[in-house]
Amino acid sequence: MRRYLFALILGLSGCAILVELGLWQLRRLEWKQAVIARIEAQIAAEPGPLPAPGETSEATKYAPVRLTGTTGAQELHMLSGYKGQGPAYEVITSFQTGGRTVLLERGLVAEVDKDVARPPVELTVLGNLHWPLERTSSTPEPDLSRNIWFARDVPAMAALLGAEPILVVAREVTGDEQAISPFPVTAEGIPNDHLNYAITWFSLAAVWAGMTVYLLWRIRRRTM
């Protein structure tokens, strides 16, 4: 009887823990879906003005803006890529607008067009504010001699280009795009694997339950 009781307690406890982990992931899924829906609504909202200097925060992240101004003479190139088409570079430059200079991520150029001369040009840009946190301890330092960056480091890029640490990612561009394809901000890249995690925990719970039934069956066979 003690063997039955121990196996039953072990089985029920393990199943309860695994099911609770699965339910927790479902709660996280609901939270993440709400976050993504909020970000999508923020991206698609009516454009407004640039935030005042020093007023950038998570509350203004993804906010749409419409700006008219002139691109800078110097570009920064971040290694990126076209899906299914190979390597490319994201072009980031300073942008003078309304008496201020901010960073503008104009979009992607193919690898062969990286170093093509693109003189300053006047543009009207519909874009979104963004504060990407891409740089980690494992991110290589930018190769300044070849003008290749491996992550968007807004403060460092702004300091190099003499701009405010405000990044606008272009969504629509009116004017001479100079063969640069806008690569707008979307919510597609935000990780949301909570459903897969929940399925994994529930599957483990089912396996644990099956192992418990098998263990009880083995105990019964031995005691017959």
Rank of each mutant, 00 (worst) to 15 (best):
V125L: 09
V91K: 05
L103G: 07
M78I: 15
Q96T: 08
Q96E: 15
K83Q: 13
P120E: 04
Q74L: 12
G81M: 04
V116A: 13
A63I: 00
N128W: 09
G72K: 04
V125S: 09
T60Q: 10
A73Y: 03
H130K: 12
T124L: 01
V116K: 13
T93G: 01
K83G: 08
K83H: 11
V109T: 14
D113F: 09
H77F: 13
A59H: 11
L108P: 03
P64L: 09
G86A: 07
S94K: 02
E111R: 12
L123E: 02
A63V: 01
P87V: 13
T97V: 02
G99V: 07
E75S: 11
A88R: 02
T101D: 03
E111H: 08
T71Q: 07
G127M: 08
N128G: 07
A117H: 01
Y62T: 00
Q74W: 04
V102F: 05
T71K: 04
Q85D: 14
M78D: 02
N128Q: 14
R100W: 08
L126D: 10
L123P: 04
L79P: 03
T71V: 07
A59L: 11
R106C: 06
G107E: 12
H77P: 00
G86R: 04
Y62E: 00
V109M: 12
Y62S: 05
L104V: 03
M78K: 14
V121F: 00
L103S: 08
V91N: 07
Q96D: 14
V91S: 06
F95H: 05
G84E: 09
E90R: 15
I92F: 05
E111P: 00
V121R: 03
A73T: 11
E122R: 15
Y82K: 04
T71E: 06
G107H: 10
Q74K: 14
V112T: 15
V112A: 15
R66Q: 13
L79E: 12
G86T: 10
E105Y: 02
E105N: 15
D115S: 12
T60Y: 05
G99S: 07
T93K: 01
E105P: 00
H77K: 13
P64E: 04
T97C: 10
V116D: 00
K114M: 07
L103K: 09
V109F: 09
L129K: 08
P119N: 01
R100Y: 06
